[in-house]
Amino acid sequence: MVITGQRRRWAGLPVFAVILALVAAVGALAAVDAGAEYLALERPSWAPPQWLFGPAWTVLYIMIAVSGWLAWSARGWTPALGVYAVQLLLNAAWTPLFFGAGRYGLAFAEIVVLWGTITATIVMFRPISRPAAWLLVPYLLWVTYAASLNLAVWLLN
């Protein structure tokens, strides 16, 4: 059976969900002891409580998956989705660098590049699908906050 039109469009959503679940799994595997490590770090007074990361990332990953799916369903595979894929790889790499390897400076450099690729993805998604672009804005804001937290932890530790 050939999937066409609307069926093809909706069939893509679980693919994006699985991809984001894999990105989240990489982070989760690298962060098995992250809670204890986070609590042991010198943190700035504005650092969020440990329990906030899981719910925040769950919501963000859902929004990232829907964003990618909207862009894909609007135009298929485009260079914008290539940049989207790069930012997913960078997203997956940050947790192993920060928590797994304890390389706070390298993790900061990596999150700056991640921030740039998220920004580029938003800019490239905008003409394809405005909702896809807007769904990434909370992610960009969270990564901006996370980058400043990463820098502060690096400097304090």
Rank of each mutant, 00 (worst) to 15 (best):
L149A: 04
P138C: 11
L97E: 06
P48S: 11
A34T: 07
R7F: 03
L114P: 12
G82P: 00
W69F: 07
W134S: 03
G27R: 07
L106Q: 08
L88F: 08
A133W: 06
L151W: 09
A56N: 00
N91I: 10
A17M: 12
A30G: 15
F16N: 03
N91T: 15
T58C: 10
G68M: 05
V59T: 02
W69Q: 10
V137N: 07
L88M: 15
W69L: 10
W57T: 01
Y84C: 04
T119S: 14
A80T: 02
Q87S: 08
N91Q: 11
P127K: 01
Y145Q: 07
T144Y: 07
Q87I: 07
R103K: 14
L106V: 15
W115P: 05
A92V: 05
W142Q: 03
T95F: 10
G35Q: 11
P79D: 09
W69I: 10
Y104Q: 09
V26F: 10
L20M: 15
L52F: 15
L156K: 10
A74P: 09
F98C: 04
G76K: 04
V86C: 11
V32P: 03
A80K: 01
V123C: 10
L141T: 12
A34F: 02
A85K: 05
W94L: 08
S148E: 09
T144P: 03
W57S: 00
A80S: 10
